[in-house]
Amino acid sequence: MKHSEYPRLILLMLPVAIVFLAFFLLPMARLILIGGSGENGFSEYLSIFHTPRHFESLVSTVLLSAAVTIAAVIISAVTGVFLERNRFPGREVLISMLTFPLAFPGVVIGFLVIMLAGRQGLANEISQALTGSRLVFAYSMAGLFTGYLYFSIPRVILTIMAAAEKLDPALEEAARSLGASRWQVIRDVILPALKPALIASGAIAFATAMGAFGTAFTLATNIDVLPMTIYTEFTLNANFATAAALSIVLGTITWLALYISRSIAGSTVAAAA
């Protein structure tokens, strides 16, 4: 690059730089500072790990998000590859139905879970009719899991279908000609080829689950996910420093997860190229 091009380049970068500064860096810096402005100072960040309520909230959010991510990736991988491989009447309708929840806000998804697994829900009615026992899980971890899974699947499945479309059928045929069973073909050919898509879409699903609020809010469960805890600290307790510190921790963990998965996916993409 010629030296004379630098001023022009800087000029072109200016709008992005301003937006980045104004809407990202400055609020972030402010948030970090607020997190340290409480009576505990910057040890507020550490207190999250000492306050049982906060720490439990953090752990359960991470576990829930991880479980939802794994389940969503497995379900979407099987379904996505199947949908990509098979042509049947109603396929298009099924795909658009699977991706439907993309447009729903969390509140609607929480509402759907209540209709499914609430006291007057479908699951309960069926269970009462069949076995006579009550089945209500909308307000438990299972309800949260169901709701989160519901909005995670569409995000994952579209990415996986796009990757499955690019699978080279000759690779599978080559493996089979060498004597590989169906399971060995999946293990040695299909999964390695889908790996970057699985990791990338899994990372998105994880980040979305970590930050999800509406669903948890609507279900008003007794499990506090981190966004709910932040909301409580902020609006009810007016505890700005704690809310800010929790936000930063939430953001950092999610960012770390994305970063790690990106570097894993990046190295496998290079290996697969």
Partner: peptide, 21 residues
């Protein structure tokens, strides 16, 4: 018999080598 039981060797125009190996 499916291909995996026929013991045939195949060579493809696109090579079809496993990129992850």
């Amino acid at each position: 018999l499916p291909i995996e039981s026929r013991n045939v060797g195949m060579v493809f125009q696109s090579y079809a080598l496993f990129p992850n190996m």
